[in-house]
Write a protein that binds this DNA or RNA. Sequence first.
DNA 1: AGATTATATAGTATTATATCTATATTCTGC
DNA 2: GCAGAATATAGATATAATACTATATAATCT
Lengths: 115, 115
Amino acid sequence: MSTIKTKISPDFIQKAARILKTLGHPNRIKIVEYLEDGEKPVSQIQRKLDLIQPIVSQHLKIMLDRGIVKYRQEGTRYYYSLANDFILKILSCMSDAQEMISKGEWTLENFINSN
Amino acid sequence: MSTIKTKISPDFIQKAARILKTLGHPNRIKIVEYLEDGEKPVSQIQRKLDLIQPIVSQHLKIMLDRGIVKYRQEGTRYYYSLANDFILKILSCMSDAQEMISKGEWTLENFINSN
DNA sequence: AGATTATATAGTATTATATCTATATTCTGC
DNA sequence: GCAGAATATAGATATAATACTATATAATCT
C-alpha cells in the first residue's frame, strides 16, 4: 500500500503506451529476456525461441524502430542487443507480478467477464 | 549497468504480455493514472479525459476482464478502482523512462527506420 | 563469377483493436 | 408506472498487428 505517485507527462503518455505495447507480445518478451545476457545473432534467437527466421527479424525490426534494441553488423551476421537496460526493469517488474499472482495476492483474469 | 536478471516463467509470459499490451494504450494509461488516488465513477473519468462515454466504458471493460481494475456499484453509479496497486509500479517505471529520455540517456525512436 | 549463408523485406491473408453510433439495461425519484 | 440519469452493450467499420510465403540483399567462400 505504498504511495507510489506516478506522474507521466501528457506528451510522454503516447511514448509510454508505445513502449508497453511493444513489450506486450510473448515473443518480444522472450527476445528481450534472451538478450539480457548480451548480444545475439538472429539465427541464435531463432533457434532458442524455435521460430522461423522472418518472424524473428520482424519482431526485431519492430523493436529496433521503437528503440528497444540495436544491432551491430559483422559480416553477414547481425548481432542484436538491448538498446537500454531499462527495458529489463519493466520485465523485472513483471516477474514481481508473477510472484504476487502465484501467491494469490492478485487474481489476474476476471473469469466472470472473460472474453 | 546493474545486473537485473529477470526470470519470467514460460507459462507466465503470456500473461505478462497481456498485462503490458493492456497498458499499452494512451487512454488506458490515463485512466490508471487517474484512478491512482482512489475510485472514480465513469462519468468523472469521462469528463477528466474528455472522451465519450462508450469509449471509457469499453476501456474499463477491457481492463476489468484483465484484472487491472475492479468496480463497486452504488445505485446507478459504477465506481472503478485499481484491482491492484502493483499496476502503478509499471507506470512509475515508465516515469523513470521518461526521465532517462528527457536527459538524453535513451533515444527512443530510431528515426532512420521509423515506420 | 557462382554457390552458400545470414538476414532483411515485400506481399498477403487473417485476426485483433479502436472508435463510433445506436440502443439496451438498471436504478432512482416522482 | 414513467422520466431521466448513469452506464453497459451491440453492431458496424476502419485501422493495425500478426504470421506466413516468397523473394531480395549482401557478405563470404570456392
